[in-house]
Amino acid sequence: MRIRLKIWRQESNETSGRMESYELKDVNEEMSFLEMLDVLNEQLMEKGIRPVEFDHDCREGICGQCGVMINGEPHGPLQHTTTCQLHMRTFRDGAEIYIEPFRADAFPVKCDLKIDRSAFDRIIQSGGFISVDTGQAPEANTTRISVPVAESAFDSAACIGCGACVAACKNASAALFTSAKITHLVKLPQGQTEAQERVLKMVSQMDAEGFGHCTNTEACEAACPQEISVLNIARMNWEYNKAHIMRK
């Protein structure tokens, strides 16, 4: 198949960018989307054009490093699928495909499709953990956790930190990411001791990074490759409100 590409090119954080058009013939529909970009890059290099920089690593949908806007949607048109798991058979012959980086002021573009998502790390640093030093842990089976609780904690913990939720949100809010971690930890008995402090710190860090407000459009859930539920956001709000009322 033959496709036409419009790709965001931006040499560095300091320069401005623009959309550039490329054409690819002989695209195999069994190719993954990123393999298509590999082929494009080989052809660009043959012509002496700087290859398109994009983030990717595991290429099996779990590391969360890949992630671009494809035809105006995070990770492209297939629901609950990361960019690396998207295959060219999803597109028709002759298709025009727009590729842009995830955009948010908290995710500055580094080069082409590469962005800086370290804001997510700083949110986790502010409190997204259970404070247990190596060696302090008690015998694992002393804490019983029912299957539904463990499973629902897992649902929240499944986040891969790709940033599609922020990219999809009209306000570039990081509420889904932040709440998934808060919810994962507060659902488990081990995580409850620090629940109050954690939610206050993480929300405050989320705000400091310049993410917008959550206005509950639920676009994040629709864009999330891991199907993280917006009810995590409700849980974060609940914990936050509780912490506010209870704190001294």
């Binding site: 953990f129 302090q136 842990a137 008690p138 804490t143 956790i145 299957v147 904690a153 488990l188 081990q190």
Partner: peptide
């Protein structure tokens, strides 16, 4: 023990044990 204390949601039996 360490992983459970960190909050790793391992698979459980219905009684709540690992």
């Amino acid at each position: 023990d360490q992983a459970v204390a960190q909050g790793v949601p391992f698979g459980r039996e219905y009684a709540g044990y690992l």
